[in-house]
Write a protein that binds this DNA or RNA. Structure first.
Lengths: 331, 331
DNA sequence: CTGAAAGCGCTAACAG
DNA sequence: CTGTTAGCGCTTTCAG
């Protein structure tokens, strides 16, 4: 059994030079129809397919980009960042780019560099450390941020329209007659937290609804923490009739707390979350949530990054993806 | 600003040949201490790091493996396969292997081949099509299966100890006094389904508990389908006092159905799931489930695959990872 | 222990 | 439109 055929074998079998074979595969239009056909034929016969490594070596480009998840303890298991990854992967898979995936933590721990991993561009998901960003910039590696934003650095960012999503949520609750809407926030990515919080305040104001100081609470990002914070919130007398949660895990915590206090959803309490995680429909009642099109965000990241890598000028600094409230039974 | 330094620059600066620089990086012990030091110094100064592409080209190995998720409509978003991926990634990241990730579907659609993607080995997650497996084998590409098994093909498989997990679940329910335990199964990966079903039957038998025909049902893999199947199951009179579910999504459906029928968990009905998905703790009460160490499975896949790629003989055909019932409030 | 030199498979001028 | 040829950066005999 012969080893995998090279361009040279095809050249010989088809009776043309290697240069022509090369052209046939990388730029068919620059080869006469008849010649092209012969090359394809020979290639088919030999079961030849161009060696990507050799090609990379010759053109001095690797076509490799990286996606680093920058969130404490998060891995590919974090549904939000995994969905973005999915979008990136889809897009990348239909080009000839390749994707390296890791977390900020692992990247640093392993002492990886863009050079050592032959990366030509990078997508940073979440709150990336400035040192990481600077490192890439210093090496001339294009960077795109997703779900995060750093003012004054001219770094393209892909984000969701948080403000509008939150607005829809508050409008929805208000239109259902709620006047005392609480917010339970979590210690999340500061960019997102700020966006969501400010939007909440603004939306309430727009509706002319006051926000009681005691009605805004903060918790950690796990269900238990959210549950206990919610227990406190719901023990106020009188208690809020609705809770807007900074994400779905927190919302799940609120639902658990409500159940323990024997409050019925949505009659006694309306709950709405953010992100529209897959488990929203596992809850009973199903959770109303602000849907974020993470896959789309992933796609757009790749678009921005390719623009950057192709040296395009004026790549948009802000790419925002619409959000949409999905109303379910919890509100 | 000079372009990235090559082995040649280091060679010149350190006053040794490129061969020696090469050796210094790939096999330090074959270079005199003093020389080695000089090389490192020069490399440091130039900020040199070996070019992986060129290296691949020279040694004719890519060190690239692929992980393909073989499940209808599943992507990296499927928590189970994502957890395995996480384990693979962790392991791979601490070696100099690289990981390409895709789905069986995308792989086929894009017409990718091991050769075109320079893959040297592949991990197939779930029920891979025989045609895919054969294709890789025909190309001499080592294959490892995870969460699946094909008899008589001598393909190393990494699986969970399904039987024991199910046994623990049934034992747990029986010891809590349940005698009428139903099973709600889903149209999942046939290998897993069979394992879980057979184990259920065996465990019930071991306990001397009869299984009523009407108490075993099948549904699709979404919550709605599970919910309606569960509604039927729970409408039997008398109804089962416990339901063992083939996975957590199905279990969530049972919980929803129970709630709609105003059954209290665990007093009126005990529910246990399989997989120990992250949303188990989001439910109220939290869901008892059979935990599967997917990350470990991922690690082991890489181990088996590397053994295969290194030409080791007698790579174990079966690698089984222990499972453990996590008892929570739903049972 | 170290150096010289011949590739690895492909591309990109440059000629024809 | 096609062929010649010189690399791309690194490894690896084979000598020394």
């Amino acid at each position: 059994m012969p080893s995998t055929p090279s361009i040279y074998d095809v050249s010989r079998l088809s009776g043309v030079s290697t240069a022509t074979v090369s052209r046939t595969f990388s730029c068919p239009s620059r080869v006469r129809e008849e010649t092209r056909r012969r090359v394809y034929e020979a290639a088919e016969l030999l079961n030849y397919s161009p060696n990507a490594i050799a090609r990379s070596m010759a053109i001095q480009r690797t076509n490799k980009i990286a996606y680093l998840i920058c969130k404490q303890g998060a891995t590919i298991l974090d549904e939000f960042y995994a969905s973005i990854c999915d979008g990136i992967l889809q897009t990348v898979n239909r080009t000839d780019y390749q994707l390296l995936m890791s977390t900020e933590e692992d990247w640093k721990l392993s002492g990886a560099t863009a050079q050592s991993k032959s990366i030509e561009g990078v997508i940073l998901g979440g709150k990336a450390q400035m040192s990481l960003i600077s490192e890439f910039r210093a090496q001339g590696i294009p960077v795109v941020l997703v779900n995060y934003f750093v003012p004054g650095m001219e770094l393209p960012s892909v984000v969701a329209d948080e403000a509008d999503g939150v607005y829809q949520a508050v409008e929805h609750l208000a239109s259902r007659g709620h006047e005392r809407i609480a917010m339970l926030a979590g210690r999340m990515n500061p960019y997102v937290l700020t966006e969501r919080y400010n939007a909440f305040v603004a939306a309430m104001k727009a509706r002319g609804l006051p926000i009681k100081q005691s009605d805004v609470k903060m918790c950690d990002l796990d269900v238990e923490s959210a549950t206990s914070a919610a227990l406190e919130l719901l023990s106020l007398t009188p208690r809020p009739t609705a809770v807007f949660c900074a994400n779905d895990v927190i919302a799940a915590g609120v639902c658990k707390a409500a159940r323990r206090l024997a409050l019925r959803l949505p009659e006694d309490l309306a709950v709405v979350g953010c992100d529209d995680a897959s488990f929203c429909v596992m809850l009973e009642p199903e959770l109303t949530s602000v849907h974020i099109d993470c896959r789309r965000m992933g796609e757009l990241c790749v678009e921005r990054l390719t623009e950057l890598m192709e040296g395009k000028e004026n790549v948009s600094e802000f790419t925002v993806v619409p959000t949409k409230l999905i109303v379910r039974r919890s509100s």
